[in-house]
Amino acid sequence: MEKHDTGTVTHLLKAWGDGRDGSENELIREVYDELRKIAQSYLRKERSDHTLQTADLISEAYLRFVKRDGQKWRSRHHFFAVAAQAMRRVLVDHSRHRGYQKRGGGKKAVPMELLPTLGERPSADLVALDDALTAFEKVDARRARVVELRFFGGFTHVETAEILGCSRATVERDWRLAQAWLYQELSNEGSEPADQGRSE
């Protein structure tokens, strides 16, 4: 496991906060590792079927970063946004890996009728959802963020609104629209691949 240099994280966050978005990917990677660690410690402490809110994990990651740095940064909201993205990768990577094992590597569209059971989440569906979300980002980046924060990050409407700096009503509306968009995209997936460019 690579070593963490939180100085680097802070630096990256600042750079990101200053609007230099090129650092975002590195930043996500750092947070990604941290989240996995925290998740693993949950795994060891508790039963693996224990459910938890991803927002709790992100808050824990945040505390770890802040504690280690010993300084507050202005970009707390940015951290959460980034963490939500990182969490999305964590979940999707896991799901992709499992799906890969189950299906011998092939990627398959998710039949529509499985979707309503997403709450119990046969986790292979996440890959399709991720693909759809990636497509959505290209169409409507802001609303895609909302999905990331609400769904992967597990933040509430109010928290999401705070992180994005908009009103709660806007978040609620965006969240609804985004879900419908994704739903539609997933329903169509049987006939057309969501993203030809992705490789595994």
Partner: peptide
């Protein structure tokens, strides 16, 4: 359709 998501810890572990 994505409401009420909760995750199992196993899904968050390192693949």
């Amino acid at each position: 359709f994505l409401e009420g998501s909760r995750w199992r810890a196993a899904e968050l572990s390192a693949p």
